[in-house]
Design a protein around this nucleic acid. Structure first.
Lengths: 218, 218
DNA sequence: ATCTAAGTTTAGACAGAGCTAAAGAGGAGG
DNA sequence: CCTCCTCTTTAGCTCTGTCTAAACTTAGAT
């Protein structure tokens, strides 16, 4: 029905329009490592297939149909990713890339068995929700860690998943979903947050730009 | 380096030349569900890549190089197949097809982790050997079940893997690698073998044509 | 020894997805 | 209001892997 190439574009568009806007040709091209010309060509194909709304020179947004399609392989991605980490012991920070290599090929039956084998987890290893089979995308009740007031604590809910460098750093610090966290202080001038992290002897000082990639349960 | 299409052709050729001959255009075409013309075109490409010896109108055989290449994804196939059955509980008779759908995409690292997670098994679920990483294809010491003399017993070693119908039948009868087997009698005229099968109350009567797909440990 | 049928190869076309180069839109700064 | 730079699109090409139709081999049957 739809080609692998189309899947990749839809996934990239989905990622880029999470916060509601449109995805531009050049952004998507960069994300996929192709030229803007190729992306423009594909935008037309996707529009013809009814997966995106396309207005020349101003980018694309997913139609309801396109969103369903995207969610179906976000689900696939996150189940496989979790399986690689949880069952096969793949390193947290490498999981996204490895998953991306193999995900399109995993048959539905195998996917469901992976999910079942893990006891139907509801999030990927980085804390992002696994959509349900019927296409529902569960909204998690999370808030930025930087919103914690000093003294306030909460378990880590989610960390940004696409930068292996950053993930490696988080892993080294023990900053992973599920761990308890407490805000100690916020240095507005120095742009750092000092946090108490479960299982870690000394407090953790996080640059504001890095802390922005961490969310805690509300 | 080599495309997925080329992999598929090499795999089909490998299967068809196990017993030493050459693979013909039409056999390979049928196995892959493409036309003879496409296969002929691909034979030339494979020959140019040094993977096969190609003589027009008389088929192809794998070069040493081609054999190495084939073995590398026979390994891949069998590890994934075993993983699907053993760890994910996929039905024995469906494993070959499902594996074929996803195998090309499984990254080396994931493959090795699957293998490790199962404790480095040496055969696929149908009893075929898993080649080692260095490209060695272990020859198992097996013989056709039909060579057993009456009264003689041996554990099942391997059953033909490519016919889901037949596999379903074997599974229903409990005829799977590892099970103990004893030859009771051979009816040459009726073309049947009567076997005692471990875990099965009554003896099993197997048509000669079917028994030909079963091998036991020597 | 020849004919014919089956199997094989060639020729030519097409679809998918990418590229480069060139042309066209749009917006920021003069 | 115009200009220029950046971004986007179009045009035209390439490479894979497939197809159909036609031509050619090979070998078995007469």
């Amino acid at each position: 029905m739809y080609s692998h190439a189309m899947e990749n574009y839809i996934e990239a568009i989905w990622r880029q329009t999470l916060d509601g806007g449109t995805a531009t040709t050049s952004e998507v091209a960069r994300a996929l490592g192709v030229t803007a010309a190729s992306t423009s060509y594909m935008f037309k194909k996707l529009a013809a297939a009814g997966l995106v709304e396309y207005k020349e020179y101003s980018g694309v947004s997913l139609t309801a149909h396109g969103k369903q399609f995207a969610i179906s392989f976000i689900r696939r991605h996150r189940i496989v990713e979790r399986f690689l980490v949880q069952t096969l012991g793949v390193a947290w920070e490498d999981a996204d890339d490895l998953t991306h290599e193999m995900e399109q090929a995993v048959p539905e039956e195998v996917l469901e068995r992976m999910h079942a084998q893990m006891g139907y987890p509801t999030t990927c290893p980085h804390g992002y929700p696994i959509p349900s089979k019927d296409g529902t995308y569960p909204e998690l009740n999370l808030r930025p860690v930087v919103d914690l007031t000093p003294g306030e604590g909460a378990p880590i809910g989610q960390v940004s998943e696409h930068d292996p460098e950053l993930l490696r750093y988080f892993a080294r610090q023990g900053l992973q979903p599920g761990r308890g966290l407490r805000m100690l202080e916020h240095d507005a001038v120095g742009q750092t947050y000092t946090l108490e992290l479960e299982g870690r002897p000394a407090p953790l000082v996080l640059a504001a730009a890095v802390a922005a990639h961490v969310r805690v349960h509300a």
